[in-house]
Write a protein that binds this DNA or RNA. Structure first.
Lengths: 181, 181
DNA sequence: TAAGTAATGTCAGTCACTGGCGTCAAGTAG
DNA sequence: CTACTTGACGCCAGTGACTGACATTACTTA
């Protein structure tokens, strides 16, 4: 992170990172499959938290409500990690190669969430769609929360999921949801 | 494509591709920024078709209906290109590096669609969410269409968007939508 | 403490990609 | 028709991400 922030991702070599960490370059590549992966280490935690939260959600909830519940719960990880994830996201945002990897990670998380939904007897076809849709809302909320930390992540989540529902509703509902911030 | 299909993406070098095309390796990299990009050349066409279709959609439509309309229209490009895109997708599917790039392309298309929606006065916050959500449905439909070409792409699209609506509906609606295939 | 195992260092090699430079072909102005 | 520009291509050398093979060191455990 230090190096990536100082000189940018593209201009820091794997050898530099290894040196800064006090190890050999070869050793670096034994810990991380590639240069990008360094920034996506906590992903396993988030995945575990998410799938577990989906599994633990109250039984009678609808797919999207299940996801909202799960995202609220897993969101605490984000809130706790904000000091770390903020510079991290800044680096990712300005590096196309890292954005690609981020999207791949998200896709993998979405698939895990979809699978967790299927375990809850959400119909197969709906599970994938619900996971992607819910994730989109989650992602929007997280982005809004980064830009505007004054509100809680939960508040941003509620709004994003309301927007989602408004999308499938009537014109009036959609416009209403848009007007109320 | 020949080489990627014969020996896989990872095991074909840029030099081989260049040789097969009868040019120098350096020339290859002057035409494509990198090895992956070769498989994503038609993207500009799809983007143009999509944004134009969104712009041309009947005025009174809701965001998601606008997208359904646009995807139907742009879907013809897919139908016409099926012989090309089928082996292409097969190669992408088995190569993580290519899947990453595909996700990046999709993200870029989604952003273009979102922008097209904003041009139609879809509220800012809703546009991004609608684009991602609609794209998810489109993608599911396209995938289903690849797996089951018996039905038309339009039919798959209708079903996917119905699923989408069912997600925001009541439990009964969702289960009903799932039962009807 | 000795044997075994896992982590690290060293070295050489492959390959994607880049900058610099010379060549050659196709205009284009005069 | 000629001089001049422009653009596509080939050639060469270099950087840097990774990888495999093997030696070495650190750590466990009997």
């Amino acid at each position: 992170m230090e190096l990536y922030r100082e000189q940018g991702f593209d201009r820091t070599t794997a050898a530099e990172i290894a040196a800064r960490a006090g190890v050999n370059e070869r050793t670096f590549f034994r810990h991380f499959p590639d240069k990008r992966e360094v920034l996506f280490d906590g992903e396993a935690d988030l995945r575990a938290a998410l799938t577990q939260a989906v599994a633990e959600a109250p039984a009678p909830l609808q797919p999207l409500d299940t996801l909202l519940w799960a995202f609220r719960k897993a969101g605490r990880i984000l809130e706790d990690n904000r000091p770390f994830s903020e510079p991290r996201l800044a680096v990712i945002a300005v590096t196309p190669a890292l954005r690609e990897r981020e999207l791949a990670k998200h896709a993998s998380l979405i698939e895990a969430v979809a699978e967790a939904l299927r375990q809850r007897d959400v119909p197969d076809r709906l599970a994938g769609l619900a996971a992607q849709t819910g994730w989109a809302a989650f992602h929007h909320a997280a982005q809004a929360w980064i830009d505007d930390p004054a509100r809680s992540l939960d508040a941003h989540l509620s709004r994003a999921f309301d927007d989602l529902r408004a999308l499938s509703g009537t014109a009036q509902e959609a416009k209403y949801a848009a007007r109320a911030d």
